[in-house]
Write a protein that binds this DNA or RNA. Structure first.
Length: 311
DNA sequence: AAGCCCAACAACCGCCGGAGT
DNA sequence: GACTCCGGCGGTTGTTGGGCT
């Protein structure tokens, strides 16, 4: 026997909300709150809507201080960082971007950011790219750069990780901050703390690479951060040198079992396979890559190993 | 000018986990 | 401990509008 439906599907209205419905819902919640029961709410205020639909409408659209569209580079970077670390846990990602809803971020990722990052050209991008080439060829370089990079600073056309990494500020740009927002100074710290709260991540591993013990796979459903050991530093077992062999990071990245839809290329599944050292700049702008004396590539973290104080 | 295609966004659906009984 | 209910979440689908052929 299946679960009873949350409302009578036959009697509730579906589809886009009218301004009148919006006004009714908004004014009621502003005056009385949700009353702790979304299911009962529509009946109370005479809306022929499912309670879940009311909740969604309020959270995604009517709630105060909601921002739509216009994602900044900084927000892009946060979304990407967290997506790589924790996968499609949109609510957690949204919690780091005040004013953004999980639905908004999810849509943004699925329709735009994923394409931006992996070089799927929209027709608009193709046109911009074509325009850029034409303008460049005819000597209009300023117009060309505007046309090609008008998309939040990402170059149109096939995405170039290295190029973008170089363009990324090593620290959040002062002035990119939204008031009351975590975006801005200290955002990396904020994300890192969040990831440690969640149980570790490849992102966190970059900031303070654990060298021992060996990775534990499959400890948690949905979220596995293979090379991260979350025990406090002072309990022993971890000694962080600040230098992590590239191989380890690659393995960390490749064995991460978080579902990374759209990131198949990192796992050798796409036709354009990437390795961690090709994208780490984007996720961790402070990470630099250098060659060791043995010719083996190593990661040299620009920062001192951080205090991993668990909260 | 009309039809088609596609990107963007809004909304729905169904599952899961936590709280209450 | 078992059961029910509800909220929350993520995946998916539907709708719309703009651009292209």
């Amino acid at each position: 026997m299946g679960r009873a439906p949350c409302c009578d599907k036959a009697s509730v209205k579906k589809g886009p909300w009218s301004p009148e419905e919006d006004a009714t819902l908004k004014s009621y919640i502003e005056q009385n709150g949700t009353g702790g029961n979304w299911i009962a709410l529509p009946q109370k205020i005479g809306l022929r809507r499912c309670g879940k639909s009311c909740r969604l409408r309020w959270l995604n659209y009517l709630r105060p201080n909601i921002r739509h569209g216009g994602f900044s580079d900084e927000e892009d970077r946060i979304i990407l960082s967290l997506y790589i670390s924790i996968g499609s846990r949109w609510s957690i990602i949204a919690a780091q971007l005040p004013g953004r809803t999980d639905n908004d971020i999810k849509n943004y990722w699925n329709t735009r950011l994923k394409k931006k990052l992996f070089g799927k050209q929209s027709r608009k991008d193709q046109r911009q790219h074509q325009f850029a080439r034409q303008a460049t060829n005819s000597g209009h370089k300023e117009e060309a750069s505007e046309g090609a990079a008008g998309n939040n600073g990402f170059a149109a056309g096939a995405y170039n990780w290295h190029q973008h990494a170089m363009a990324m500020p090593s620290r959040p740009m002062p002035g990119s901050m939204v008031e009351g927002n975590r975006i801005g100074e200290g955002v990396d710290e904020s994300i890192r703390k969040l990831l440690f709260k969640l149980g570790g991540s490849s992102f966190a591993a970059l900031q303070a690479p654990p060298c021992l013990p060996p990775p534990m796979y499959g400890e948690a459903p949905n979220f596995v951060a293979p090379s991260v050991h979350t025990a406090p530093l002072n309990e022993g077992g971890i000694h962080c040198s600040g230098v992590l062999p590239a191989l380890e990071l690659d393995e960390s990245f490749q064995f991460n079992q978080v579902k990374l839809d759209g990131l198949e290329c990192f796992f050798g599944m796409g036709d354009q396979s990437m390795r961690w050292n090709e994208v780490s700049h984007l996720v961790c702008p402070n990470t630099t890559v250098a060659s060791s004396s043995q010719g083996m590539q190593q990661y040299c973290l620009a920062e001192e190993p951080v205090d991993l104080g668990m909260q």
